[in-house]
Amino acid sequence: MIKFDGVTKVYGDKVKAVDDVSFEVPEGNIVVFLGPSGCGKTTTLRMVNRLESITEGKIFVNGTDVNSLNQIELRRNIGYVIQHNGLFPNMTIEDNVMAVPNLLSWDRKKKTDRYNHLMDLIGLNPDEYRKRYPHELSGGQQQRVGIARAMAADPPVMLMDEPFGALDPVIRSRIQNEFLQIQQEVKKTILFVSHDIDEAIKMGDGIAIFEGGKLMQYDSPSELLARPKNEFVREFVGQDRALKSLSLHTVKDLISERMLRKADGLQKHNKKTITVETNLRDALSILLNQEADQLFVQANNKLVGAMRIDDVEAYLHHHIK
């Protein structure tokens, strides 16, 4: 769907911001660009919709070289979200969301329907916000409107540059979840820049780690955590990469590996219940916090078993390392 082929970007004649980068992003996937500040994430992203020119190499979207397309046309077909959402303060929320459809001169009915649909999707009441201005919204709401605007003309590809960077951790995590849910429905191909390894693991079907303009590793999150290709990646994902990888697995995986134990009815006094959707990292931290030495696992409100720290350890040992 999106293919980088030997892409290089040189600013001026000295600064090599992106250095011979090649990889492919399958349709419907989210790929997260990760790496230290100044490693070339934003530049790589912005070459896709030609906000930056490509010095060398080629980028293909859907098999077409982006340089062969009309630049304005190209951008209208690619959704773009930036860190501080870049909502237009002089326009109402409706005009912001409908910016691209307005450019494409959709008819009124189609625009209204689309606006209503998008606002429902991002969980804001269409009528309540229609005539409001960006400054009358909270940061999290603005961020969501920014995403709605990028999706307005239903572009198959979206570019997102630290879209949740400015939010506090709680709201950030909520919007991440909402966004993943929306993605289940819309299945866009998304390039997503992040600073945060945990965000990358949570959001990415693939993660691309950059350093000094070079692509260090491009793999699925579990692969990346399990087998960092070099010292830099190992350092970057951190000492606790095994632990981090637990967040990619849920209690369900434990069940499918038949590693769940029978619920021990005798220990009801120290009872703590979780659902099968809980990821193993959260389960482990509950256990470590000594809120319980054994967790009861529910599926559809029915008790299906229990788990202990040893079980997580065994799973980690056999299935992740």
């Binding site: 190209l74 773009y80 930036i82 870049g86 990028a150």
Partner: peptide
Amino acid sequence: DAAKGIGY
């Protein structure tokens, strides 16, 4: 930047 990016 946002305006350019969405194709103005």
